[in-house]
């Protein structure tokens, strides 16, 4: 199973959907450069995903960015037989990956049979250029 997109549909850039552009720019810049960047609170060391202006644990607004290893395990998963948005082609798998650094990230699995998906499966990131101006992080079975 892989994630296919309908080329006729213009995929809106996730960073542009909400009002998160400023906070999330380093994340999406990182993805473009094939890295998963995590925001780290300079005050308490809390790792934040999604990125945001203020650490919800200690209220500090001082933060830095670290590069995640890009490995983790499946925290939960789902396969879709119906595509909710015309940009997606069913079937596809969406996963919640717990990165080795701790934060969880919503993504898709590629190169895996639906029946092989399981909670706890070790996964690693891969990057897919889904449109000229959009790269998305995906995950595949590690090793």
């Amino acid at each position: 199973m892989t994630v296919e997109y309908n080329p006729d549909q213009k995929i809106p850039h996730p960073a542009m959907w909400g009002v998160l552009y400023k906070s999330s720019t380093p994340f999406w810049e990182g993805v473009k450069n094939k890295k998963i960047m995590l925001q780290k609170c300079k005050s308490c060391g809390n790792l934040l995903n999604p990125p945001r202006p203020m650490c919800p644990k200690c209220q500090s607004q001082e933060n830095e960015w670290i590069t995640a290893k890009g490995t983790g395990k499946i925290y939960s998963w789902v396969t879709f037989n119906e595509a909710p948005h015309p940009a997606f082609k069913a079937p596809y798998a969406a996963v919640l990956v717990e990165l080795d650094e701790g934060p969880r990230i919503v993504s898709n699995m590629v190169d895996v049979k639906p029946e092989d998906l399981e909670i706890g499966m070790a996964v690693e990131v891969t990057f897919e250029d889904v449109a000229e101006d959009l790269t998305l992080p995906k995950f595949r079975k590690a090793g």
Partner: peptide, 16 residues
């Protein structure tokens, strides 16, 4: 930005 971009829908979130 962070859930729907993975193609998650409400049935999908509850399925997870």
């Amino acid at each position: 930005s962070y859930e729907a971009s993975g193609g998650f829908t409400f049935p999908g979130l509850y399925a997870a």
